[in-house]
């Protein structure tokens, strides 16, 4: 049994859980905010994209780690 394959899969699989939840929260809150006051949709979108970029970075680190494992 080749454990490196498992390690790669676990690295990205577990690493994507947190960012996944985080992205969901960010998106949901952004939709909520837009629903509450739609006139600032543009600003909310910018902030949301920035937050998503930060959150996504965590998943990207996991991906990089899983790619480095060999």
């Amino acid at each position: 049994m080749d454990l490196t394959q498992l390690a790669k899969a676990l690295a990205i699989g577990i690493g994507a859980i947190g960012p996944g939840i985080g992205l969901g929260i960010i998106g949901g809150k952004a939709v909520e905010a837009v629903g509450r006051n739609p006139e600032v949709t543009g600003q909310i979108r910018t902030i949301m994209i920035l937050g998503m970029a930060f959150t996504e970075a965590v998943a990207i680190y996991a991906l990089v780690i899983s790619l480095i494992i060999s």
Partner: peptide, 13 residues
């Protein structure tokens, strides 16, 4: 690190 890896990771992924 985060600057570099974010861009690289997104594009590479």
């Amino acid at each position: 690190l985060s600057f570099g890896f974010r861009l690289f990771g997104n594009v590479f992924a």
